[in-house]
């Protein structure tokens, strides 16, 4: 089975923006101090001055939402691609400027050109979607057949009193449009099953497991390997959470939960519940592992094949080798 389209390789030479475009976006440039450190060795070489003396150097500026809209119109491309082109020229979108200390411009451009599929939009999925959108992932596909219930109000980021009874995936689409309108969203109010997973995986660069049953996770992990897509597992019970990145070529998850006809559908969460902080922190671990899958050369992201065991009651994060 062929995998998704390859992510752009970092380290390419910066592509300057046309002078005509720079004049157009000039009112939307905001001065900012140049980056003091190289966030990542995958970053571009030093930016050559792109502007005539009447214009400031792009490396000393960031571009606001209005400027991104102008670049998008100029190139007739979606906003996420417009921001990626700005970054390739060394010009940071203002909305991602606070990512600059840990991501290089080309890391950020790679995220904007990435598609991630998130299975489940409840406790873990709601936070994962918001984190990936704020980090700059440009395309998010997500599914959930369930509707919000009052018992979800204790922890699910997308659950509000006025959304009780609404489909969770539809709510995610509405929330993402408010938080990050540049994200290309694909909303599927369906379950992840062996029948639906191939289409959910098509052309995606990472699959994030925010499901709520062990057999569904087993299907998803197997499908990810079959489609050559990295799999980011997450699960919670009580104050404890677990997160694991399985490489595209190895279903590490099956070592934790081998296929079995007697596998339980649910686990310790049925007894201990799922209090608010646990999905939030576990989702953050999953977001970091998703970044690792999308930016394999980044020097400071967690490694695959290590099970992260979070215990907020102690608190500690333990690394376990599977």
């Amino acid at each position: 089975m062929p995998g998704p389209a390859p992510l752009p390789s970092p380290g390419a030479v910066p592509s300057p923006l046309p002078q005509e475009l720079l004049r157009l976006v000039h009112p939307h440039l905001v001065p900012c101090p140049p980056a003091q450190n190289s966030a990542s060795p995958t970053g571009p070489p030093a930016i050559t001055p792109l502007l005539p003396p009447t214009f400031p150097n792009v490396a000393s500026n960031a571009i606001s939402l209005g400027g991104v809209a102008a670049v998008s119109a100029f190139f007739a491309c979606p906003p996420a691609e417009a921001m990626a082109r700005c970054l390739e020229a060394g010009l940071w979108p203002l909305r991602f400027l606070r990512n600059r200390g840990v991501l290089s411009p080309l890391d950020q451009a790679t995220l904007l050109r990435s598609r991630v599929t998130v299975l489940g939009c409840g406790g873990l999925g709601g936070y994962v979607l918001l984190l990936l959108a704020r980090l700059g992932v440009g395309a998010l596909r997500f599914c959930d057949p369930d509707t919000f219930e009052e018992t979800n109000l204790n922890r699910q980021a997308l659950c509000r009193e006025d959304r009780i009874g609404l489909n969770k995936a539809e709510a995610a689409k509405a929330e993402l449009a408010l938080v990050a309108s540049h994200v290309a969203t694909e909303c599927h109010p369906i379950a992840a099953t062996p029948e639906t997973l191939p289409a959910l995986l098509h052309g995606t660069h990472a699959l994030v497991d925010c499901l709520d049953s062990i057999p569904a996770r087993q299907y998803a992990a197997a499908a990810a390997v079959a489609h050559n897509v990295p799999f980011v597992h997450g699960t919670i019970a009580g104050w404890e959470g677990f997160a694991l990145l399985c490489p595209a070529t190895d279903n590490t998850f099956s070592r934790l939960y081998p296929p079995s006809k007697t596998a339980p559908a649910h686990g310790a969460e049925a007894t201990l519940g799922t209090p608010a902080p646990t999905p939030q922190v576990t989702a953050a671990l999953q977001a970091m592992l998703t970044l690792r899958a999308l930016l394999p050369l980044h020097p400071s992201l967690p490694s695959p094949d290590i099970l992260m065991h979070l215990d907020l009651g102690l608190p500690e994060i333990e690394l376990l080798f599977v």
């Binding site: 489940g120 409840g122 406790g123 873990l124 999925g125 497991d209 925010c210 499901l211 709520d212 049953s213 062990i214 996770r217 997450g234 699960t235 919670i236 019970a237 404890e240 677990f242 939960y257 596998a263 339980p264 559908a265 649910h266 686990g267 310790a268 969460e269 799922t274 999905p279 065991h309």
Partner: peptide, 8 residues
């Protein structure tokens, strides 16, 4: 020792 955990 860990039990199965499946919450999301």
């Amino acid at each position: 020792f860990f039990p199965p955990v499946g919450g999301g």
